[in-house]
């Protein structure tokens, strides 16, 4: 759909020229506008200071009416109560509470803020079970959201 392409191109442009602090669009390996990686740097003064992570964004044809698929990828997955060791993130704006007024930028900011407010590095309590049973697409999980304090 033309709308989704136009919108993603605009987002790529913004992420290239003025990315939110602590993020960087990985343009070197970008092959299509349907998916790309964003580097995320843990903020100074938080448990993740000095650490670097990679987020994978994938866009369907119904973007922005439907949310992008977003997950951590690579060797280093943040140890956080809402992040499973396979990279899946339990964050309501990525599924039920997605709004077309949100964007790659706002998703990055939410994830950064989720990391920054973490008070103890640990995995979700159901991690072992979840990663054994979940689908490869986090959007296929019917999330039952944890508290939003962290």
């Amino acid at each position: 759909m033309a709308f989704s392409q136009k919108r993603i191109q605009k987002e790529i442009l913004t992420m290239t020229t003025s990315p939110p602090p602590g993020t960087r669009l990985v343009t070197e390996t970008m092959q299509t506008t349907k998916e790309f990686l964003v580097e995320v740097h843990g903020a100074q003064g938080t448990l993740f200071a000095g650490e670097q992570f990679k987020l994978l964004f994938k866009f369907g044809d119904r973007y922005p009416f439907e949310s992008p698929q977003v997950m951590f990828v690579g060797d280093h997955i943040p140890e956080h109560p809402h992040v499973y060791s396979n990279g899946h993130i339990c964050l309501s704006i990525l599924t039920d509470d997605w709004s077309p007024a949100l964007s790659v930028e706002s998703v990055c900011l939410s994830i950064l803020s989720m990391l920054s407010s973490c008070t103890e590095k640990k995995r979700p309590p159901d991690n072992a079970f979840y990663i054994r049973t979940c689908s490869s697409n986090p959007k296929d999980t019917r999330w039952w959201y944890h508290d939003d304090k962290v």
């Binding site: 079970f129 049973t133 979940c134 689908s135 959007k139 296929d140 999980t141 019917r142």
Partner: peptide, 11 residues
């Protein structure tokens, strides 16, 4: 069904 297949089937 196992969990993930259940979620996928519902979706």
């Amino acid at each position: 069904m196992p969990n993930h297949e259940f979620d996928e089937a519902v979706n």
